[in-house]
Amino acid sequence: MRIATLAMICTPMMIVGGCTPAPQEPAYAPPPPADIAQAVLRDASGNEVGDALLTQLDQGIRVVIRVVGLSPGVKAAHLHMTGRCDAPDFRSAGGHWNPEGREHGRDNPAGQHMGDMPNLIVGQGGRGLLEVTITGGWIDGSDRALLDADGAAVMIHAGPDDYRSDPTGNAGGRIACGVITPG
Rank of each mutant, 00 (worst) to 15 (best):
P160R: 09
P109R: 06
W97K: 03
G46P: 07
M117Y: 02
G141E: 10
G46W: 07
G126F: 12
Q124K: 12
A152D: 02
L120I: 00
L57Q: 14
D86V: 14
N108T: 04
L70R: 02
N98K: 04
D116M: 04
G50K: 10
G95K: 07
Q124V: 11
V68M: 06
G105Q: 07
T135D: 12
A110S: 13
I65D: 01
A145V: 00
E48W: 06
R91V: 13
C85N: 12
A152C: 07
G128N: 05
V63G: 08
Y163N: 11
S45Y: 12
R102D: 10
M155V: 15
S71E: 14
R102V: 01
D51V: 03
P160M: 08
G95L: 11
V122C: 05
L54Y: 05
F90I: 01
V49H: 07
D161N: 15
G95C: 10
H104G: 00
A77E: 01
N119V: 04
N98C: 08
A149N: 06
D58N: 14
D162S: 08
N170I: 05
M114F: 09
G101C: 07
V67G: 02
A152T: 02
A76H: 05
A44M: 00
G83L: 05
G111L: 07
A44I: 02
A152K: 00
D107P: 03
L57S: 02
E100F: 15
I36G: 12
D162H: 01
G128V: 14
P99M: 10
P109Q: 09
R42P: 09
H104A: 10
A93I: 15
G137D: 07
P160N: 03
G95S: 14
Q112D: 15
M114H: 03
N119W: 05
G137P: 04
D116K: 06
A171G: 13
R106M: 08
P99N: 04
N170S: 05
R42G: 03
A87D: 04
D148S: 13
L147K: 08
A87E: 10
T168Q: 08
I139T: 09
G83F: 08
D148H: 14
G169P: 10
A158I: 12
G115Y: 04
D161P: 05
G73H: 06
S165H: 05
W97R: 01
V68D: 11
P109F: 02
G159V: 06
T133K: 06
D43I: 00
S92H: 00
G115Q: 01
D143G: 14
G136F: 09
D51R: 11
A39V: 14
Q38C: 04
D86K: 07
N119S: 11
D140R: 01
V67H: 01
D43P: 00
R42I: 11
R66Y: 00
E131H: 05
Q38M: 11
M114Q: 05
G159M: 09
D143N: 09
A158W: 03
L57I: 03
G172H: 09
A153M: 08
N170D: 12
Q38W: 07
L53M: 12
T135V: 15
T55Y: 02
A145M: 04
H104M: 02
T82R: 14
Q59R: 13
Y163K: 12
F90Y: 13
E100G: 12
G101Y: 06
E131S: 06
D89T: 13
H157F: 11
